[in-house]
Amino acid sequence: MIKFTFYLFSLILIFASVRVVTVKNPVHAALFLVLAFFSSAAIWLLLQAEFLAIALVLVYVGAVMVLFLFVVMMLEINFSQLREGFVRNLPVAGLVGALILLEMVFVVGAWQNVPPPVATEIPNIVALGQVLYTDYFYPFEIAAALLLVAMIAAIALTMRPHNRAKYQKPDQQVSVNREDYVRIVNIPSEAKD
């Protein structure tokens, strides 16, 4: 039964991942990505990594992908232009990809003694909590620094300096005089013929 579930979700995962890159509409691609996330979460559940599985659903599907969908819908990029080279490059890329896949299947496929999932008495999330802030304290801190860098980079690259934005200055608006803007010009009327 577990084997059947595994193969079912694996097939869905592979199908969804292929569709992410082949489908024409970017919104559909994002939705297929959501499907891929769901299937991998299910596979993680089979490995008894329930915390990671639920984190994947909550964080990636719930937050990241929804945001991503918004961005895709708002940007209105012409995706057909971006994928122009797809068919042209397909033969070579497909051949190389198939070759690598074949080699990997031969090597990894022959690997028989895959270690079984570790069954522990303590639940997954407790085990994670026990090591995250102790054994893995340093990598955890560095990962935090990494996120900070991502944030700084995003702001530095997108924030436009003030001189482009137009502001109202109410004090100056109020203190405007008629003389500053209106000039009475005396235009001589044209002489009659």
Binding site: Y136, Y138, P139, I142, A145, L146, V149, A150, A153, L157
Partner: peptide
């Protein structure tokens, strides 16, 4: 971090910290 890493995790985190900063600095 990369130079004094003693764990594959640290090698990777150090590398990412370096690369991410470099990408942003080039695009500045």
């Amino acid at each position: 971090i990369m130079v004094s890493a003693h764990n594959l995790l640290m090698v990777f985190l150090g590398l990412e910290l370096l690369s991410l900063s470099l990408y942003a600095m080039i695009a500045m």
